[in-house]
Design a protein around this nucleic acid. Structure first.
Lengths: 193, 193
DNA sequence: ATTATTATTGGACGATTGTCCAATAAATGG
DNA sequence: CCATTTATTGGACAATCGTCCAATAATAAT
């Protein structure tokens, strides 16, 4: 076989850059990550990276796209596994608990990115807010399925905000126990809807 | 009279730097504000600022101290005006609503600062977390006064987290209406404690 | 009035930032 | 096998970053 994907190697290099940059952006922030940092971490040369991305901003946009893809897959899996909206929303909360180590150390990847970009890079923040939109719309569907009608989006944003609050406080105090306690509160709130 | 405060003029210059830097840090973030930005905004010369602060970090520490002072005064005023803990906590939420324009545009001054510093400047974040501590301890006292005993600190952190969530979501979507709706939810929660 | 301390002026410093580009190597298409 | 596109190498670039410092002015102490 081996019709061979065109530019196969190039796409692998590109994906490697995105993965590498994504991790650095998450752990040190976007501005906190220099181009040289990406060069070092990826093991590539400056010029090689610039062959795939003309600017650092473009790398971030690719990172956001990649994250969108990951989260879309995650939501699709939850949708496939359960048709009870409550259980799906609990899965959302369980994701938070499951990633508590990273959340406590680096904060919410979506929230902290948006918060950083909202200050001085609104053009990029607009792209990053698509990550919030994804969850907002998915949660809105869940609430609609629970018969919440017109309130659904409002409730979705409430839950999203609660999740952000949990992430911020747990991160600031680097307290996994606090995160556990607050997610439990969140699960209770969902159960008694 | 005129025993004259020593170094009076110097202290005014110093206070001007702190105020100026504080506003810039809030609006553009700490790393997003360069030393030259502070120079321009304050109308002073580089060397003059360095006469008062040896590093940019020191300016931030002074800004944090100044904010602590402001918030301490605010809490003391609330304590003096009301001895009902619920009403005092409502005053806390009303502060959020009262500053909704800035919150929507620039986010929570305490939360966004801590979130930024937590990524790569943990030494500074430790100083900034004192701002959270101030409200946490004050809210804890409120809950204790409501007879919540050992749960009080946990509840204080819950409320603090809720407030952070409101700020993050409203900021990301730059939506004052959302902030209004969510603070109403917060007031309701306090009322029915 | 003279000294000592504090404040201001204004420029310079090396290090790091994101970006760019010509030269070379590798892979693909005819 | 040759031609052409794609990928990699490796360094250079101006601009900006935080920091530093000698010279001068102003104020306070004796």
């Amino acid at each position: 076989m081996q019709t061979a994907k065109i530019h196969n190697k190039g796409e692998k290099t590109r994906a490697g850059i995105v993965e590498c940059a994504g991790r650095l952006f998450y752990e040190h922030g976007y501005e906190g990550t220099s181009f040289s940092d990406i060069v070092e971490a990826s093991g590539l040369f400056r010029g090689n990276i610039y062959h795939y991305f003309k600017t650092k901003d473009e790398i971030l946009r690719a990172v956001i796209e990649a994250h969108l893809e990951v989260y879309r897959g995650m939501l699709a899996k939850w949708d496939a596994e359960n048709d009870d909206a409550k259980i799906r929303m609990i899965a959302f909360v369980d994701m938070i608990t499951g990633r508590k180590a990273e959340l406590v150390e680096f904060g919410c990847p979506i929230g902290s990115l948006n918060t950083e970009l909202a200050k001085d890079r609104r053009d990029l923040q607009q792209a990053a807010s698509a990550l919030f939109d994804l969850f907002r719309d998915w949660l809105t569907d869940c609430f609609k399925q629970l018969g919440k009608g017109a309130e659904s989006e409002s409730l979705a944003l409430h839950l999203l905000g609660r999740a952000q609050g949990v992430a911020v406080i747990s991160h600031v105090y680097r307290d996994a126990k606090l995160l556990r306690h607050e997610t439990k509160t969140l699960r209770d709130w969902i159960s008694q809807l």
